[in-house]
Amino acid sequence: MGQVINNIFARSFRSLSRGRNVSGYLMIAPYLLHLVIFLGYPLVFAFVLVFHRWDIITPMEFAGLKNLTRLIHDDLFFKALLNTGFFLSIHIPLQIITALFFADLLNKKLKGQDFFRTIYFLPVVVSGVVVAILFSQLFAFENGYINGIITALGGERVPWLVSPQWAMPSIAIIVTWKNVGFYIILFLAGMQNIPASLYEVASLEGATTWQRWTRVTIPLLNPTMVTVIVLSTIGGFSLFIEPYMLTGGGPLNSTLSAVLYIYNQAFYFNHMGYAAALGFAFACIIFTIVFLQKRFVTKDMYS
C-alpha cells in the first residue's frame, strides 16, 4: 500500500515537475486548498453572517446593521467583556508571580529539578475537562477539599463557585493552576539566557535580592513577559470549558465568558448571525488589546 502511494507520488512529481518550480506548487497546493476552504471561506462567510439573520434552518435574511446595533445595546456582551477583564486582572498577575517564583527555584540548578519540572508541567497536558471535574470537588462548598482544610484551620467556608463575587476569581485560580507550568518553562528559558556576568556585576556593586530582581531579572525577561501577557490574554478570551462545566456561566452571569456567550447564542438560541457578529467583535477587541500590549509593555520596560 505504502509502496503504491510512493510510486504514484514519485511518478506524478517526475512527470509534472520540469524544474523545482512545479514541485513547489504541487507540494504547497494541499495546504493552500485547505486554507482557502476551512479558513478563507469561513472568514468571508462570518463577515456575511454579521449582516444577516439566520437560524441555520430557514433561509438567511438580510438584516443590515441590526446585529451591530443589537450588539451595542446587549448588556450580556458587555458583561462577558467585563468578566474577561476581571478574569485577566486576577489571572495575569497571579500567573506571572507564581511562574517567576517557581522558575527562579528551578534555575538554582538543585538536584532533582527535572523531577519537579515534570510535576509542575503535568496539569498543562491534562484535559480541561479533567481539571474541571477535579475542581468541582476541591472547590465544593459543603464537602470540598479546600473548604475542609480552611474549616480545619478554624476559618469560614469560602463560597468558591457559588457566589457571584467568588466564582470568577475561583476560575482564574483554576486556570492559573492548569497553565502555570507552561509559563514556568518559558520564564526558565528566559532566565537561562541572562548572562551570569550581569549578576556578578550586581553582587560586586552590593545589590540586594530585590534590586537583582527589579534591575536585572525582570527587565531582561521583558520579551518573555510580553509573550506571557499576550498568550494569557488570548487564553482569557477563549475561556470556555471551565465556566461551561463548573458554573454554566453563572451565578448571575458572573462567569459568562466570550466563547461561552457565542456558544449560547448559536446553539441555545439558534442566532447564528448574531453569534458570528459576536465572534467578530470579540476578535477585533483581542486584536486591539494584544496590539496595545505588545507596544505598551515592550516600550514601558525599556524606558
Binding site: 495546504y31 469561513p42 472568514l43 447564528m272 467578530f280 486584536f287
Partner: peptide, 24 residues
C-alpha cells in the same frame, strides 16, 4: 507572499471561525 499569508492566518482568533466553520 504565501508564507506571509500563512503567518497571518496564525493571528486569526479561533472564535471568529467557530460559527462559520460549524455552518460549513
Amino acid at each position: 507572499t504565501v508564507f506571509n499569508l500563512i503567518l497571518f492566518t496564525m493571528m486569526v482568533p479561533f472564535m471568529v471561525l467557530l460559527i462559520p466553520l460549524y455552518t460549513l
